[in-house]
Amino acid sequence: MQLPQAIERLSSLLARLPGVGERSAQRLALHILKQEPAYAEALSGALAGLHSGVRFCERCHHRATANLCGICSNPHRDASLLCVVEDVPDLLALERSGEYQGLYHVLHGVLSPLRGVGPRDLTLEALVRRIDAEAPAEVILATSISVEGEATASYIQSLLRNRPVLLTRIASGVPQGTDLEYLDQGTLGRALRARHSLLRP
């Protein structure tokens, strides 16, 4: 059955969101229509203000509402630690862990020749400038454990080769709660290579 054009238009826009298919988009559009008109107005206002109200933090390239994001402007964060992440969801995941109190640098992607993403498409120059200016004691590379994530980490390593900074890579290996017998050989191999000592003679 044909739907009114306004619903079709909203559905087609919603269907462009990640993880939303055509049928889900239609359901969402009909759900919005079922709510009070004030909800649709608030939603459209929030969407309209998104681009004008949000910018990139000029220090770490996280999303921010001012020149600096909430993390960079927080004086209680440990400025001697700098964690390099691919994208904002990765930063949010690390924040949720509650284990990290340092600062971040968001690359906005990984090096991917297959997708046409090269070094100039990432915030790598800004990263090097920032490390030179702020001289953190440690830079933690938290790009994904994939071929492209590893190549990006390796590229950053080459950029920082002659700088007096401790460069570390996040650990990878056996996920918590997993039986070794079910692990693939690549993950198990990495876990063995990245083992740490408990006792020394």
């Binding site: 020749p113 590893e150 190549a151 390796s154 590229y155 080459s158 690549g186």
Partner: peptide, 25 residues
């Protein structure tokens, strides 16, 4: 899926990635 072999390992460089991607394309 199960992996038989992987060519580019943990310490893959950007040059290697470019070359492998080019061959893939």
């Amino acid at each position: 899926t199960s992996e038989r072999r992987a060519w580019l390992g943990d310490s893959v460089g950007y040059d290697q990635l470019c070359l492998a991607s080019y061959a893939a394309e």
